[in-house]
Design a protein around this nucleic acid. Structure first.
Length: 894
RNA sequence: GGGCGAUUGGCUCAGUGGUAGAGCGCCUCGUUCACACCGAGGAGGUCACUGGUUCGAACCCAGUAUCGCCCA
């Protein structure tokens, strides 16, 4: 892929005369480059997307919108740099890069921040108040007690969320600009913005129209703190302390059946006892009944393969609902529903009607309204008293499901919720799971093994995607329901808005054909009170950023996108859900490639996290070391590989800083030889063997780096460029500097050869480093070139090969070895490298004799040999180069 | 319990069949002449372990151990 004829950036003409070098600082420095070039790039719109480009010319990137209410940490800088390196590489290759940035301001973290910041809470039943002023504005950041928070309408609440996130977003943008992300900032979006809401609501309604979205009254995971349903993808299994309680049930003929449970408070919700069908201990009980202790409910004893014979007593009580296994049993064995846990996590206050014994109703009256914790203690006391508790409870650690943002174990509560099909549940006539697995195979994961995580997740789904949330700050589910004449809500016949009217808030907008005074009255309508899960919006980032629905011209040029960049932790959420939406809506993958970044680990190999107190403020880090240095560190870690980071010992960052400084200094040096005459990139001028050899080596480096970046291996590309560059500085520059200075008596063609080779090499080196070190390379570029290096073409090896001609690829290494041998003599003699040899003889492998002869005069100059430098053949089997020579006394200091 | 990844010099990591590599750190030396945010030279490893395939294994195969992550 090369730059097209229609591109605004002409391909460079390598032989053209370039203006004389100007404006090279005496002491080049990294300090201040971020501000200077950041401003220049903004001014020049260096990274603006040219929407006249065709789809083939475009390279489009779908980047994770960071949660603006959270804080950015080192890990963000790490992974966003990976994406930027790709973007810059593709831009230089001539692709028109579509690189928008989004902000994820939708969702729970923002809600919590807004509540504290403004002292408000959302009450969707309240009407909108125009020109609302919240009780606090900023305050001291302390949380305001729930009781003191002023209740406001959802629309007012959302407005406050938007006001606050707008401030956060400015800080985020500043960081990203400082880091040097080559984002087109005119393309940014917010996941709570009108565009995002329109996209999310339209996509949902289309899912609904196609039968891919549906509502169901079903048991589901429920967070009692936030009082919202939670999806499978948001689960986190954590260790949770508990106790095994041995509880006795009784058969009609007096036999005791002992089960073990960690949740005795669910005893009134028990609907059966269940053992494995092959478990001989309980075979005689299958089909019979037992009676529960305390509550006296008659329950069947049933067989099901999910019962684990070697766990506890091997027979379990099935309650509605203690865990997901209970749900499976309940569904597959068609058990009754006897729920006792309310949405606030307490036991139902009213005594359930399936408790019929007087003692049972009395016991329940004691625990109704209590938290599960208190109810458990009460039930255990009662069991102990009735003699149905066998022994004392035994402490245990068990795995419990938590909402990833919650701190209490999830309960399972039956509620009406909206779902989108994702292959997790069978649907007649379609194998959606297989379709989505095929999409995963179609997607190019980098690294490839990350595809397994996708496949494992899709293969292990056990339900459709629950998208409704009983929260406030989010995209509303755009539906109303009729209220029947007798005041019932008719959920089966939702009232759907026109697509053209989206986005809407059904709690403040009125459906077509109704008036506001019909809200909530018989014969009228009610709004669906829920919002969509954040992922239900962010799963549509390619559509939101790409102009779906509103700009079909743009959308056709950028979608499906080329790249999704993200962390490995959200493959099951963001990556998967985006594929689901795109597959359902467009019948296509949303992107061709997925670049998965690894974790940042602290020195103890633990994931960096705020709670562990090991997070470094990214902006401070950039300011301290320089953005190029930090970018070098990020680029030196491969995709998918975790990188360790010790803020106390930022070794890799310092290496990056050293490299960036070296680029400045070496460039200044290489450009200094031209004096006042124009620099020429003339391949025909390169005639000396060592000059040809260095360009030959660089041509190979270009090919390797290009292939590596094409394969999304930025690390290898950086490594080969870096290795070349150090050899270029340490050996080649030293070897040719005397000649390049144009000392008296030298052949002018030899001088021109060195200068041309240095210019050609520098031109290529700057381009190679530009994606990783955008500031240092741009700084150097400005000394002798027009325009931005970031709009220059990616280097190709052909000009270099032309200049190299028959250049010997081994020559630089051999000359370097000879030079090192001369240096070693001085080093071991403990004298300055500037000490001269009176004369010297190099003993070396005869095979390299001619090579050294070809660079002899450069070697004499660089090695400081005043008199003759002669060569001798080493004996058989002798490796390397040895030196015999007399050092002259050091010249006296002046 | 299943899956994925890792295990190479003090540290961080390259290296997919042909005599062990880099950078950092360390040791020694050096500095007006691009660069002390520097330069030169040097020391340092039986490639986690056990078998196997091969003329030859850090690399391929089987297994083991340890660590990390994901899923149950």
């Amino acid at each position: 892929m090369t730059s097209s004829a229609s591109s605004t950036r002409p391909a460079p003409a390598p032989t053209e005369a370039i203006r004389p070098v100007a404006q090279v600082p005496d002491k080049p420095s990294l300090e201040g480059l971020e501000e200077r070039w950041g401003a220049a790039w903004a001014q020049e719109q260096t990274y603006a997307f040219d929407r006249s480009a065709t789809r083939e010319q475009v390279y489009s990137i779908d980047t994770p919108p960071p949660t603006v209410s959270g804080s950015l940490h080192v890990g963000h800088v790490f992974s966003y740099t990976h994406t930027d390196v790709v973007a810059r590489f593709q831009r230089m290759r001539g692709r028109e890069v579509f690189y928008p940035m989004g902000w994820d301001d939708n969702g729970l973290p923002t809600e919590r921040r807004v509540q504290n910041y403004y002292g408000v809470r959302c009450d969707p039943s309240l009407p909108y108040v125009a020109d609302y002023t919240p009780p606090h504005d900023g305050g001291d950041g302390k949380s305001v007690k729930a009781g003191d928070q002023q209740p406001i309408s959802r629309r007012n609440f959302v407005e406050l969320c938007q006001r606050l996130t707008a401030e956060d977003e400015q800080q985020f943008e500043h960081l990203w600009r400082y880091l040097g992300l080559s984002v087109d900032w005119s393309q940014h979006y917010q996941t709570i913005g009108d565009r995002a809401q329109q996209v999310a609501q339209t996509a949902f309604l289309r899912n609904l129209a196609r039968g891919e979205a549906y509502q169901a009254e079903a048991p589901g995971l429920w967070d009692v703190t936030f009082q919202t349903a939670v999806a499978q993808a948001e689960l986190e299994a954590r260790d949770y302390p508990g106790h095994f309680h041995k509880i006795t049930f009784h058969t009609p003929d007096g036999e005791s059946v002992v089960i073990e449970t960690t949740r005795p408070e669910l005893l009134p919700a028990c609907v059966a006892l269940i053992a494995h069908p092959d478990d001989e201990r309980y075979a005689h009980l299958f089909g019979t009944t037992v009676t529960s202790p305390l509550f006296g409910v008659e329950l069947p004893v049933l067989a099901h393969p999910l019962a684990e014979p070697d766990k506890g007593a091997g027979i379990a009580m099935c309650c509605t609902f203690g865990d997901l296994t209970d749900v499976t049993w309940w569904r597959e064995l068609q058990l009754p529903t006897r729920s006792v846990i309310a949405r606030d996590g307490r036991l139902l206050r009213d005594t359930p009607d399936w408790l019929t014994t007087e003692a049972g109703r009395a016991t329940y009256a004691e625990i109704g309204g209590k938290t599960t914790f208190s109810a458990r203690a009460a039930v255990v006391d009662a069991l102990r008293e009735s003699g149905d508790l066998l022994g004392e409870p035994v402490a245990t650690q068990r795995k419990a499901n938590f909402y990833e943002k919650g701190d209490k174990p999830l309960e399972i509560v039956t509620s009406r919720q909206w779902y989108i099909r994702n292959g997790g549940r069978e649907v007649p006539g379609r194998d959606l799971r297989a379709e989505l697995l095929a999409r995963g195979d179609e997607l190019d994961f980098h690294p490839e093994f990350m595809a397994v995580r996708y496949a494992n997740w899709v293969g292990g789904l056990n339900g459709d995607w629950l998208i409704s949330r009983q929260r406030f700050f989010g995209v509303a589910i755009p539906l109303w329901y009729p209220v029947t004449a007798d005041g019932e809500i008719d959920h089966a016949h939702p009232i759907v808005p026109d697509e053209a009217s989206l986005p809407i808030d059904p709690s403040s907008h009125v459906p077509h054909g109704f008036t506001e005074d019909q809200r909530g009255v018989p014969g009228g309508f009610v709004a669906d009170p829920d919002i969509m899960d954040t992922w239900a919006t962010s799963s549509l980032t390619p559509q939101i950023a790409g102009g779906w629905l509103v700009d079909s011209d743009l959308f056709s040029r950028v979608f499906p996108m080329d790249l999704r960049a993200q962390g490995q932790d959200i493959i099951r959420t963001w990556l998967f859900s985006t594929i689901v939406r795109s597959h359902l809506e467009h019948g296509a993958l949303p992107w061709a490639h997925a670049a998965i970044s690894g974790w940042i680990l602290d020195p103890d190999r633990k994931k960096m996290s705020k709670s562990k107190g090991n997070v470094v403020t990214p902006l401070a880090m950039l300011e301290e070391h320089g953005s190029d240095a930090v970018r070098y560190w990020a680029t030196s870690a491969r995709l998918g590989t975790d990188a360790s980071f010790d803020p106390q010992r930022p070794t890799q960052i310092k290496i990056g800083r050293r490299l960036a400084i070296k680029v400045l200094n070496a460039s200044k040096f290489a450009l200094s030889f031209a004096g006042d005459s124009p620099v020429r990139l003339d391949p025909d001028a390169v005639t000396e063997p060592i000059d040809r050899a260095i360009l030959r080596g660089l041509a190979d480096v270009v090919d390797t780096a290009t292939a590596a970046l094409d394969a999304y291996d930025h690390t290898q590309a950086l490594e080969v460029a870096e290795t070349f560059f150090w050899t270029f500085c340490d050996d080649y520059l030293e070897l040719v500097k005397d000649r390049a200075y144009g000392r008296e008596g030298l052949d002018p063609a030899a001088v021109a050869s060195a200068r041309a080779a240095l210019s050609l090499a520098l031109d290529t080196i700057l381009r190679l480093f530009a994606p990783v070190l955008p500031y240092a390379t741009e700084e150097v570029w400005s000394w002798w070139r027009e325009g931005s290096v970031h709009r220059a073409a990616w280097p190709t090896s052909d000009v270099l090969r032309e200049a190299a001609g028959d250049g010997d690829p081994e020559l630089v290494a051999v000359a370097g070895t000879a030079l090192a041998a001369l240096r070693k003599v001085k080093s071991e003699a403990k004298v300055s490298q500037r000490t001269k040899f009176a004369s010297a003889e190099l003993t070396l492998d005869p095979a390299n004799h001619d090579r050294v002869l070809a660079v002899l005069s450069d070697l004499r100059a660089a090695g400081g040999v005043a008199g003759d430098l002669t060569l001798a053949a080493a004996g058989d089997g002798t490796d390397g180069v040895t030196v015999a020579g007399d050092l002259l006394p050091a010249e006296p200091k002046q």
